[in-house]
C-alpha cells in the first residue's frame, strides 16, 4: 500500500467512526433550535434543496457562454461583474462583490481561499471538498503549477499565473478562453463546454466533440 492509499483509508475510517456521533449531535442541535423557536425545520429543507437543485455551476456557465458570444456583455462583465450579471434575468441573484477575471494566452487566473473556503456560491454552487481542503489551500499560492499538474493540466512555461486569494467578500469568477472550433455556436451549445473547474482556474473548458 502506498503512503497515499494509507492516508485515504485513514480518512475513510475516520469519517465512518465519527459519523454516528456527528449525526447525533446534528440532530440534537436541530431539535434544540426548533424547540426554542429559533428555526423552522421546513425552512432548512428549502435551503438544502436550493443548493442541491437550483444553485450550481450551470449559473456561471451561462454567464461565461454569454461573455463568449456577446462582446458588449463581456466588456461589462469584466468592468463590473455584479452589475453585468444582474442584467441577466435567470442568474441575477448574485449579490454584490463579484469580480470576473479573464484568461488570455498570456495570463491564466486561478482562485483560492487560503483562510477558509470563500467561493462564488451563486455562480458555482457549493465548493467541492478539494477546494476547502488543506492540499489546495496550502499550495495554490506557492506552487500553482504543481496544483494544476494534480488536475492533469499544464500551461506554457511563459504563461503568467495569477492566483486570487479570496481574503475578503469579493468573489472571483474566472472567464476561461473560448475553445477554438466553436465559431457560430449558440450560447446554449457553448454553455455545455463550460466546466466548474474552468471557472475556478483549475481546468479548461471542454473541447468541441469531447464526451460530456
Amino acid at each position: 500500500m502506498t503512503e497515499h492509499d494509507h492516508q485515504h483509508d485513514y480518512h475513510h475510517h475516520n469519517d465512518h467512526s465519527e459519523l454516528s456521533e456527528t449525526e447525533l449531535r446534528v440532530r440534537a442541535l436541530e431539535t434544540i433550535l426548533t424547540e426554542k423557536g429559533y428555526v423552522d425545520p421546513a425552512a432548512l429543507d428549502v435551503i438544502i434543496q436550493a443548493y442541491e437543485t437550483r444553485i450550481g455551476p450551470h449559473n456561471g456557465a451561462r454567464v461565461v457562454a454569454k461573455a463568449w458570444s456577446d462582446p458588449v456583455f463581456k466588456q461589462a462583465l469584466l468592468e463590473d461583474a455584479t452589475k453585468a450579471v444582474g442584467t441577466l434575468g435567470h442568474v441575477s441573484r448574485v449579490g454584490d462583490h463579484l469580480v470576473a477575471v479573464e484568461n488570455t494566452p498570456q495570463r491564466h487566473n486561478m482562485v483560492v481561499c487560503t483562510l477558509c473556503s470563500c467561493y462564488p456560491w451563486e455562480m458555482l454552487g457549493l465548493p467541492p471538498v478539494w477546494y476547502k481542503a488543506a492540499p489546495y489551500r496550502s499550495r495554490a499560492v506557492k506552487d500553482p503549477r504543481g496544483v494544476l499538474a494534480d488536475f492533469g493540466i499544464s500551461l506554457p512555461k511563459e504563461t503568467e499565473i495569477r492566483v486570487w486569494d479570496s481574503t475578503a467578500e469579493t468573489r472571483f469568477l474566472v472567464l476561461p478562453m473560448r475553445p477554438s472550433g466553436t465559431e457560430g455556436w449558440s450560447e446554449e451549445q457553448l454553455t455545455e463546454l463550460v466546466t466548474r473547474d474552468s471557472m475556478i482556474g483549475t481546468g479548461f473548458p471542454k473541447m468541441p466533440g469531447s464526451p460530456s
Partner: peptide, 24 residues
C-alpha cells in the same frame, strides 16, 4: 498536505447531516 484530489461527480453533500449543518 500532499496532492489535491478531486472526486469525480462529487455530490453536493456526502451525508444528509452536512446539509442540515449548512442550513442551520
Amino acid at each position: 498536505f500532499g496532492k489535491v484530489e478531486a472526486e469525480p461527480n462529487e455530490p453536493t453533500f456526502h451525508e444528509k447531516w452536512e446539509g442540515r449543518v449548512l442550513a442551520m
